[in-house]
Design a protein around this nucleic acid. Sequence first.
RNA 1: GCCCCCGUAGCCCAAUGGCAGAGGCAAGCCCCUUAAAAGGGCUCGAGUGCGGGUUCAAGUCCCGCCGGGGGCACCA
Length: 817
Amino acid sequence: MDEQVYDPQALQDKWLPRWERLDAFRMGEDPQDPRPRKYMLDMFPYPSGDLHMGHGEVFAIADVIARYWFQKGYNVLHPIGWDSFGLPAENAAIKRNAHPAEWTYKNIETQANSFRRYAISFDWTRRLHTSDPEYYRWNQWLFNRFFERGLAYRRGGLVNWCPNDQTVLANEQVVAGRCERCGAEVVRRELTQWYFKITDYADRLLDDMEQLEGGWPERVMTMQRNWIGRSTGADVVFEIEGHGPVTVYTTRPDTLFGATFFVVAADAPLAEQIVAPDRRAALDDYRSEVAKLSDIERLSTEKEKTGVFLGVHAINPVNGERIPVWAADYVLSDYGHGAIMAVPAHDQRDLDFARKFGLPVQVVLHTGMADPGETGIATPGEGTLVNSGPLDGLSKAGAIAKIIEILETQGKGAGAVNYRLRDWLLSRQRFWGTPIPIIHCADCGEVPVPDDQLPVTLPDLRGEALAPKGVAPLASATDWVNVDCPKCGGPAKRDTDTMDTFVDSSWYFLRYLDPHYEGGPFEVEKAKQWGPIDQYVGGVEHAVLHLMYSRFFIKVLYDMGMVTFTEPFMRLLNQGQVINQGKAMSKTLGNGVDLGEQIDSFGVDAVRLTMVFAGPPEDDIDWADVSPAASQKFLARALRVMGEVSSAPGADFETGDIELRKVTHRTIDEVTRLIDTYRFNVAIARLMELTTAARRAIDSGSGPADPAVREAAEALAVMLSLIAPYTAEEGWERLGHQATVAKAGWPQADPALLVQESVTCVIQVAGKVRDRVDVSPDISDGDLEALALASDKVQAYLSGTPRKVIVRAPKLVNIVP
RNA sequence: GCCCCCGUAGCCCAAUGGCAGAGGCAAGCCCCUUAAAAGGGCUCGAGUGCGGGUUCAAGUCCCGCCGGGGGCACCA
């Protein structure tokens, strides 16, 4: 190899095959292995074509941490796999009249090759693909366990339907009324679907977040808290005349005396049950009107309140007042009890409705604000209860406690908790996913496929057979669908839905421990050793999707006794996006940057370095603001320094130039701290300085034969190996060492070389710098103060005795005249 | 509308309440070279979005604005 020019392609061609032979990143399997374990997990990719710039960033960042752990001597698990079920494969298959597996596995190979070239420190022996029957078999096994525990169930109800993808979606997959995948407007449909009972775990999902404090970004936890949306209040029973008791949920039972009307969700069955005969036509009209609205229109806060009087009245349980019952779409049928008591004085939504339809406003809480009936502004805050019988004079909190007590003794209500979180709708009417292992039998009902008959593999459908026709594609595979009931042996049919692919990703990190294990989804003993994950790295787009589902799965597995921890990911790092010219890369904008092309132009190391050096890992990287060419220059410079060292390996560093040695050890010390705190960009800046210092020593200092230069270059090689493995490996070889630098061991800073024999102390008068003196780092406050006051430059600004002297030895003295 | 984060040289970014600049890009200059490229070196540059406050001392803490980004938004 030509040592004069930096040729990244040649470095890659040289080292990649050697590394493959060394296989340095295998997890240690020996349970007696004394090394402490570390588990690094990158969010596994979906195989849509080749790796893109976003992958380039996230894997580069995670690899710095993983390689750091390897250098520090941990037993590291850093696996890779593919989230390979999903719609794009299916759509591609329809278009090309092919099988989704062809497209999927071809892309996986492409990405795997790119990962190898990108030099990520994976243990390739743990590779898995969720679309392999040996993987999804365990989705089905887990489904059976959930089913046994009553955590998987089937029910009818209004669901979100994506007309473009022709499937239902979970609540989490609907963003502002649109399909999270394709952006199509979601419509509501009445369908019978499978659900996971995640709501049973709402409290634990919320309360266990305590364990993640400090380890997860605050905003992700906020999003999850909002999503779960726990609220406390009371259930209150109103009697509806001519119908019977109806319960409502309220967070403000203290305002019960201010309820002036009652609203049921227009789409709730209750509305048609209670409507007066002469109002039925009006309700039907209103309901069809509401049904026409999209979610986006319905949820708009700009929209005026609508509703219809149902011709019946409800009786307020505490004062016997008759209040009219309305139906409206601002009340949701699937939250609380689908009906509310309306207190317009203290709730803006109710007030808007009251003003629209001329309903009375009754103030029951003095807040010091103007009358809501006059201003149209509800007063939801604190205050003193009025017009409320036994509650009068109480505070809001006092009244809430008191009214709950009253309701409970009268049997008219009780304290209650509600959640925004809904159960996880998991069935999908598409092909390329895990078949739900249920057989429907006319006599036995829903019968799980026995574990020993798993996996239920997908039938061989391709091309046109996969095209959406409003029913699940699996329904057309009649040979597959028609089976004998496992219970009674009679004729029965398989469930034709497949599972949401978020099921696949909810537990994949446990499968990595032994991806071919046949005794269960994972080996319980290994999960005990390796879980939970020490560091998870991935995009923030999964804040309430994958991350919530995984947390739920782990809690269920914990209850099953299969894992010993209740949270899967102890630390979470959300890397930023790679953008270009201030905007997300997109085909329509034509501002896309291709990772492969960047690598071809600048080399793997320069691209990785650029990703990590651009800024803090959470920040977006604007590719227009960074310079992979400059990264390449630095790497070339570093490699030249390493190549110019002329002392022999093993040279005694102690005999080297002390000043350079101090720089080296200070750098080691700082870089260690910076990597520990994930400030990689700053760490790289320190490595650049070390490189410059070594360069100077070679050119105009102690020369290339000085052992201190070797010490600096060797430290540089090891530290640089986290970011630029090819360059570091080549430099390591030129320094006379055997591969691989990745396992050379993290350098140790010698504390003796970190102490300074003098530091510059700043002397301020009234906060302005007036003098500097070189002092010993362990000078006493008293000595330093005396020294400062003795300065002529300082004295020039003083007249008489200073009022105050602040001494911060050894760095600063501030004299207040 | 509510909540959170961020505003430091032309640009990207550093700075446990203690000298505003570590590093990089760009710009300019010098050395090396027959020349260019590559390489080596030097220089330039902001008083920290605006206005108050706390403090001996504020980029850092507090309050109010302005600008940018994100989250939530009929969940009773």
